[in-house]
Amino acid sequence: MDKAELRRRIVAARAGLPDPRGSATAIRETLLDQPWVQMAGLVACYWSSGTEPATHGLILALWKHGTTIILPVLRSDDDLDWAVYDGPDSLAPGRRGLMEPVDTRRGVDAIRTAGLVIVPALAVDAATGVRLGRGGGSYDRALARVGPNVPTVALLHEGEIVDGVPAEPHDRPVSMAALPSGIVTF
Rank of each mutant, 00 (worst) to 15 (best):
P18R: 11
E160R: 09
S23Y: 01
L60P: 00
G137M: 12
G164V: 14
A54C: 14
G66N: 11
G133S: 06
F186S: 14
G147Q: 14
I118N: 00
T185F: 11
L91W: 08
D79K: 11
E168K: 05
W82V: 05
G133V: 03
S23P: 08
Y139D: 00
R131F: 02
T51C: 11
T25Y: 03
D140E: 06
A123D: 05
A144N: 15
E158F: 10
A92T: 14
S175T: 14
P120Y: 01
P35R: 13
R172W: 03
L91M: 15
R145V: 12
A54L: 04
A44C: 08
P35I: 13
I161Q: 03
V108Y: 01
A44H: 06
T104K: 09
A13R: 10
A154K: 00
I118W: 00
L71E: 01
P101Q: 04
F186V: 11
R106Q: 12
D140P: 02
L132E: 01
E29R: 14
T25P: 02
I27S: 05
R28V: 05
L17D: 06
R28C: 13
L122I: 04
R9N: 12
D163E: 11
I59H: 01
Y46P: 01
T152M: 14
V117Q: 02
L74N: 04
R8D: 12
L143Q: 05
S175V: 07
L116K: 05
I161R: 13
V11R: 15
E29A: 06
T55S: 10
